[in-house]
């Protein structure tokens, strides 16, 4: 799901910037705020897809220590890393939630023709935190159930 959404938002961002060029060059129209919408869209794409990297274990990691360890050691290490990631994900969820709350209170919006209240795009932060938490939990679960399969999952960096 977040995969499709991530791709879609990337497409929307490209389309918005393209539309801005066409409006300016062909119709001599400038609308401030289109850039903001495009960057919001690209940011959504990045943050929604981040959890997918956890699910597929494709985020860039350093594997020195793991390569030195036995199977048992690698399992312990992977558990430690997953718990660490769970902590970061939960912290992001909390921090993102506070950010949205803060923006609701602060009431600021983007300047220019299109005024977007900041809390709206910032909702992506707690959503991303929640998705990351979910995916990390899933990985921990499968680490418990099928440790060997998880340990042999794709090399870091590889995209499916």
């Amino acid at each position: 799901m977040e995969e499709q959404a991530g791709g879609l938002f990337l497409f929307v961002a490209v389309a918005l910037v393209f539309a801005q060029i066409v409006l300016r060059v062909v119709f001599n129209i400038g609308i401030s705020g289109v850039y903001e919408l495009a960057t919001f869209s690209a940011t959504f794409s990045v943050l929604l897809t981040a959890s997918l990297g956890v699910k597929r274990n494709t985020h860039v990691r350093v594997d020195i220590l793991r390569n030195l360890l036995s199977r048992r050691g690698a399992l312990v290490l992977e558990t430690v890393v997953q718990v660490l990631m769970l902590t970061v994900s939960l912290a992001l969820l909390y921090s993102g939630w506070l950010l949205v709350d803060e923006s609701l209170l602060f009431g600021d919006h983007t300047t220019g023709t299109i005024e977007i209240p900041m809390w709206a795009p910032q909702l992506i932060m707690p959503i991303a935190g929640a998705l990351l938490t979910l995916r990390t939990l899933q990985r921990i679960l499968s680490l418990i159930r099928t440790p060997d399969a998880v340990l042999q999952s794709p090399t870091p960096g590889a995209v499916d």
Partner: peptide, 26 residues
């Protein structure tokens, strides 16, 4: 008919539009 860069500001963008220029944010 000109394209004029302006930092986002409602009154300035409105002034440019009224002169027939395109306010460009960049």
């Amino acid at each position: 008919g000109m394209k004029v860069r302006v930092a986002p500001s409602k009154p300035l963008e409105s002034m440019l539009s009224k002169a027939g220029a395109a306010p460009i944010s960049m």
